[in-house]
Amino acid sequence: MQASPSATGASPTAFQRRSQLYRRHLDLDAAFADYEGVLAVAAYADPRVERALAERLGLADLSTWPRSGCAGPNAPQWLADAGRQPPNRPNKAVAQEDGGLIARLSEQEFLILQGLEADPGLFAALQGNWPSDAAESVHPLPHADSHCWLALSGALASEALAKLCAVDLSSRSFGLCDVAQTSLARVNAIILRQDLGATPCFHILSDASSAEYLWDALVDAMREFGGAPVGLEALRTLKLRDRPSESFSPTERHPRIQPRKAP
């Protein structure tokens, strides 16, 4: 079931919960939308332009989108009992049936990301079920207020990230559902790869207090590749496509960028 924006043109200040980046979005004349109580940027420009951008290189702010986490010796079992599929080793993620992701950050720590098309309301069910008893050996780690959540999509996403991150995030060494916890533009970040259809996409979670800095650093790094911010709707449409649109070719618009030869 896909949640659709019920009220496009929503004003961020009318919501109790806003992204740390909402002033950046206002500056870009973003169209905000209300996704069942969650405020997010639907788009900044025409949907077709945004989709093309997202296929090439787009940056979306998902900071208000639901996420959570848990930790403790009993966390894997608890997640399995809750009907989720926890990854079996650290720095791996598993795509969930609802389209979300669960990443294992260490032996005993997990991060849960809500799928982009899932109903945000459904997440509340999990949130409401945390054990309150310490003897359960599992405790919640919400991640909602501590981290910002950005998604960098497009064929050139790993090229742009290479300017800011020492870990090789290209397809050769960083596959689907891989997780890297490292330094990105000199701030700590959790980077997860979950492609949207055929388009590579990296989820980035980083300290909320430096969200504006990281956003600006990423936008700056994307500029030479012709990348720009995109709304949630563009990512959602990508997910429905299983191959890139035929008109797209990285070299066509930017002669400086050569397609990489297959290894």
Binding site: P90, N91, A166, V167, T182, S183
Partner: peptide
């Protein structure tokens, strides 16, 4: 940069430690 091999995360720049 000098690399340090983290038992959890693998080889990383020493600046991350």
């Amino acid at each position: 940069m000098k690399l340090l091999n983290c038992p959890l995360n693998g080889p990383r720049n020493i600046a991350e430690f």
